[in-house]
Design a binder for these strands. Structure first.
Length: 606
DNA sequence: AACTGTGGCCTAACAG
DNA sequence: CTGTTAGGCCACAGTT
């Protein structure tokens, strides 16, 4: 395995291969750290040395972060300095293959960036942020926009050092994720360097192709089909309030198990007008699925679930932390992800095995199942607080076991008490609640606290309020807590970072028809030479003025503290976030907006 | 002509 | 994949 890092420096904005030579290439193979440096005149020699090193080392796997782009950068540089980019085993150049992946003939070319892109929690998608999300600690780094400054200073060695560290970091990450990639490749049949690049849908499809082949089934062509929406999972309306001792019953892998149980599959579906003597019939649309042979979906799921069961069994007898444990754990994770993907795959119009009736029937049987469970729970005298798709929130503890037993014996579905809340708060909204887990800790679902598009100051306030109310139920304490934060904000005693609102770009800035705040901020950035890509997160701060909010939203990099519109943050961020919780206790906005009492609390935080 | 309120629409982010 | 919530823009209608 060879990990590689390319150090590129853009004198004006992001580096361009047309005029910015490669400054250094660092490689690490677990033992040897190598670096090829710019000689001050041309990058011809460092590229040649690097290519010779690759030839000598002859790695099976080349791994990088953003290496897909690096190869095309290197290709352009090679053209300019007249060096053939022979890195493949047949001396071929890297070339584009499927899913936008770049292949190096004879070697496995892994781009960890594609794995990072799958993690929606990341905001900047830098290697450092990605490493941190995997639990690796990262020391101070020179930020990219300062590279040119360092390049022309006596501190240039720190830049080279950093590139070496990056190569080592990439290697370490590969050591953590390699097993998972190998397992995913083995199960799906996708080449290993495609598994991170391919979407979950393509991964499921690769596996289905294997399964169909082994069953002697024909593989459907990819044909454009009309998109017809269908109804999904059932969500119960919660009653606003605080509840004590609430248990959550979860159906385990509900959709996969339903597909298995009713043999729901494109090849077992009986179209309208055709005869079927003995079929499973979906509860609402009356779609029919034959029983006389097992469909591709069911047989794929059967294999996945059986395999996972046996892997988990083997895991019990393997020492934690050992290589075998790591490999097995990676395998059971890969198996679970694939099983859970199949329902989404069935409803994806681009899928070879797409059939709306399949996805529709799965959702129907899901709603049917949960309705039956709710009905039974009520019959048993249990109170239903809430439920979403495959879970029900129930009060009381005694009869729970009976209910779970009934679900397993009468509905033929696996279910278990997943968690217990000692106290839980519901707003009038679905998919938004917070509670204290009996086991330990606060859990927040759907509320602003866990959303990425609210300013930190608002999220922090809401978390404080929620915690206070769940732990002490002391309304006046929560109110004075909010009043103090409002006072601090109004006097500008809040860090600027806490005022940034982040939004992800889903198309290029010019393509938007509505001039929303983040769009205008993105346009301003790109006007100033920043490159804004689809998928990038744009951070903006609302500044003072009387025009529309959008026009006052400016990229946080360009805002000075004195320009911040603190009143906007009070009215549109802090108060709404706090009110979401406090409304439940009858507090109104005016109460929050009053001056804080000049008691100990008010002075305690100054 | 400027202002205000309303509802539809666009957009994003979450739950499962 | 669908279900759900929510903010802000924008066109429009009615008011001043």
């Amino acid at each position: 395995v060879m990990a590689v890092h390319f150090l590129k420096v853009g004198e004006k904005g992001s580096p361009k291969p047309e005029h910015d030579p490669i400054v250094a290439i660092s490689t690490y193979d677990g033992k040897m750290l190598r670096q090829f440096k710019y000689d001050g005149k041309t990058d011809k020699h460092l590229i040649e040395d690097f290519l010779n090193h690759v030839k000598a080392l002859d790695p099976d796997i080349i791994v990088g972060y953003g290496i897909t782009e690096d190869w095309s950068y290197l290709a352009e540089r090679c053209k300019r300095v007249d060096v053939p980019l022979e890195v493949g085993r047949n001396y071929a150049k890297p070339h584009t293959s499927v899913f936008g992946h770049v292949s190096v003939t004879g070697r496995i070319n892994m781009d960890l960036f594609h794995n990072a892109r799958e993690n929606p929690q990341l905001t900047e998608y830098t290697l450092d942020e990605y490493a941190q999300s995997l639990g690796l600690s990262v020391e101070y780094r020179i930020p990219e926009h300062k590279y040119p400054e360092y390049l022309n200073s006596s501190d240039v060695d720190r830049l080279f050092k950093q590139s070496e560290e990056y190569a080592k970091l990439v290697y370490r990450i590969w050591m953590m994720l390699g097993d998972f990639a190998i397992q995913l490749s083995q199960i799906t049949g996708l080449p290993m360097d495609h598994v991170f690049t391919a979407s979950p849908g393509h991964r499921a499809e690769a596996y289905l192709i294997r399964e169909a082949y082994s069953l002697g089934e024909l593989i459907p062509q990819r044909i454009e089909k009309p998109y017809v929406p269908y109804v999904g999972g059932l969500v119960l309306q919660p009653q606003e309030g605080v509840y004590e001792n609430v248990s959550v019953i979860d159906f385990s892998s509900m959709y996969p198990n339903l597909m298995l149980k009713y043999n729901i599959s494109p090849d077992t579906y009986v179209p309208e007008g055709e005869e079927c003597g003995d079929c499973f019939v979906s509860p609402e649309s009356k779609h029919r699925f034959r029983k006389d042979y097992k469909g591709v979906y069911a047989s794929m799921l059967q294999k996945l679930l059986d395999a996972r069961r046996s892997v988990r069994k083997r895991l019990e007898n393997v020492k934690e932390g050992s290589v075998e444990h790591r490999v097995l754990d990676a395998r059971q994770k890969a198996l679970k992800i694939l099983a859970n993907t199949l329902y989404g795959y069935a409803g994806w119009v681009g899928a070879r095995w797409y059939l709306r009736e399949v996805a529709e029937s799965v959702a129907e049987w899901g709603r049917h199942t949960i309705r039956m469970a709710i009905e039974k729970a009520r019959e048993m005298g249990l109170k239903i607080i809430y439920g979403d798709t495959d879970s029900i929130f129930v009060t009381d503890g005694e009869k729970l076991k009976n209910l779970v037993g009934w679900i397993e014996s009468e509905l033929g579905m696996e279910a278990r008490v997943d968690k217990k809340y000692s106290r839980i708060l519901f707003t009038e909204a679905k998919k938004r609640y917070g509670g204290l887990l009996a086991a330990d800790g606060l859990e927040v679902v759907g509320l602003e606290v866990v959303r990425g598009d609210w300013a930190e100051i608002a999220k922090e306030t809401q978390l404080g309020v929620l915690k206070t109310m769940l732990e002490t139920r002391d309304v006046s304490k929560a109110v004075s807590y909010v009043r103090n934060i409002i006072a601090e904000a109004r006097s500008g005693r809040v860090e600027m970072e806490k005022m940034i609102i982040w939004k992800r770009m889903t198309k290029p800035p010019e393509a938007y028809e509505v001039r929303a705040p983040h769009v205008l901020a993105a346009l301003e950035l790109s006007k100033r030479g920043w490159r804004i890509d689809v998928g990038d997160k744009v951070g903006y701060i609302v500044t003072r003025g009387s025009s529309k909010i959008g026009e006052r939203a400016r990229p946080y990099q360009l805002v000075e503290k004195k320009d911040i519109d603190y009143e906007y943050y009070v009215r549109n961020q802090i108060v709404p976030a706090a009110m979401r919780i406090l409304k439940v206790f009858g507090v109104d906005e005016q109460t929050l907006l009053q001056e804080p009492k000049k008691g100990l609390m008010a002075f305690g935080t100054g």
